[in-house]
C-alpha cells in the first residue's frame, strides 16, 4: 500500500513500467514522428479503449495536474468518463471538462477547438500508429520504408484518391510529414484538426495494442501531405452548430427524428457549452 493509503502506486502503473515508458517518451520527443516501441502493459480495460493513451497519461501525471478526457470531442461519453474516473481514483488528480483549465488532456480522435497553451499536454489514443500499414502489412517493410524515407506508396495512395474521386478522399487519420523527415499518422482525428498539430502544447501519442509511442514537441513543422495542384484542405460540414451557432467548429451530424430530421452540433462539448454560457446562440 502506498503512502497515500491507496492500494496501488500513484497513477496505477508500477515505477519500473513508468520508467520504461518515460524513456520511450523522451526518445519520441527527440525524434518527432518516429514510432518508438515500448513494452505495453495489460491495463484494466480492453484494447481499443485507450490503453496506450492511459499508459502515457499515467507516466506523465503529477498530483498537481488537472485532467480532462474527451472521446470524439465529448467529455460525457462512456470511454471518457471511465478514463477520467480511473485517474481520479488511482492518482487522486483533479478533473475538469474545461479545456482551458486542464493541464493534461487525454483524447480519442479530436483536438480541442480552444487553442492549447504552453504547460498543457495532449495525449492521443492511437489504434494503428503506422500510416503505411494499410498499404504494406509487414512491419519489417514499413520500418525499412521509414528508414529510407521512402514514402512514394503514400503519395500513390493519395493520387489514386484523386484519380477515383477527383479529390483526396481521406478525411481522417490524414497523414502528415514531420520536420520534413517522418510520415506520421496523427491518429484518427478529422483532417479539420491537422493544422492544430503545430501546437503550443506537447502532443504525445500512445498505441497500446501496437505498443508504439510517438510525439510532437511544440512548434514542430507538421505538413499534411498534398500535391501542388491539389493542396490540403481541412474540411468540415457546411453548417453551423444548432446549439451555439458556431460556424468555425468541427460538427457532428445528429438525427433528431425518424423522418429525416437532422441537425449539426459542435463535436467539442466544452467549446459548445462555453459559448452557450457566454450567450452565443
Amino acid at each position: 500500500m502506498s503512502a497515500d493509503g491507496l492500494p496501488w502506486g500513484f497513477a496505477y502503473l508500477d515505477e519500473g513500467t513508468k520508467r520504461m515508458i518515460r524513456r520511450a517518451l523522451l526518445k519520441a520527443l527527440a525524434v518527432p514522428g518516429l514510432q518508438v516501441p515500448f513494452a505495453s502493459r495489460e491495463m484494466p480495460m480492453p484494447y481499443g479503449w485507450g490503453t496506450g493513451g492511459v499508459q502515457v497519461t499515467a507516466s506523465v501525471l503529477t498530483p498537481d495536474d488537472v485532467l480532462k478526457v474527451i472521446d470524439q470531442g465529448a467529455d460525457d461519453t462512456t470511454n471518457a468518463v471511465s478514463i477520467r474516473r480511473f485517474f481520479a481514483r488511482t492518482a487522486g488528480v483533479a478533473t475538469t471538462t474545461r479545456t482551458a483549465e486542464a493541464t493534461v488532456i487525454q483524447t480519442r480522435h479530436r483536438i480541442p477547438e480552444t487553442p492549447l497553451r504552453e504547460g498543457q499536454i495532449l495525449v492521443f489514443q492511437v489504434p494503428i500508429p503506422e500510416p503505411l500499414r494499410f498499404l504494406e502489412p509487414r512491419e519489417t517493410e514499413t520500418r525499412r520504408m521509414h528508414a529510407l524515407a521512402e514514402y512514394g506508396l503514400m503519395h500513390v495512395k493519395l493520387y489514386e484518391d484523386i484519380a477515383r474521386h477527383g479529390h483526396i478522399a481521406t478525411t481522417y487519420a490524414y497523414p502528415v510529414l514531420v520536420e520534413g523527415r517522418y510520415v506520421m499518422d496523427p491518429s484518427p482525428i478529422p483532417k479539420f484538426d491537422n493544422p492544430k498539430l503545430c501546437s503550443e502544447a506537447i502532443l504525445l501519442f500512445g498505441a497500446g495494442r501496437e505498443a508504439r509511442i510517438h510525439a510532437l514537441p511544440p512548434h514542430t513543422r507538421v505538413e499534411s501531405l498534398a500535391f501542388e495542384d491539389h493542396p490540403f484542405e481541412p474540411a468540415r460540414a457546411a453548417g453551423i452548430c444548432a446549439l451555439c451557432g458556431a460556424a468555425d467548429s468541427y460538427l457532428d451530424e445528429v438525427l433528431t427524428d425518424d423522418r429525416g430530421g437532422r441537425i449539426f452540433v459542435c463535436s467539442d462539448t466544452d467549446f459548445c457549452e462555453t459559448r452557450r454560457a457566454g450567450g452565443a446562440s
Binding site: 517518451l25 520527443l29 507516466s59 503529477t62 514537441p217 511544440p218
Partner: peptide, 20 residues
C-alpha cells in the same frame, strides 16, 4: 523519499525540457 511522487514531478520537468 517518495519515489512515485517526486519521480513524477522530476520526469515532468525532464519531459518539458526535452520538448522545449
Amino acid at each position: 523519499a517518495d519515489p512515485a511522487i517526486e519521480g513524477a514531478h522530476a520526469f515532468r520537468a525532464a519531459l518539458e525540457a526535452m520538448a522545449r
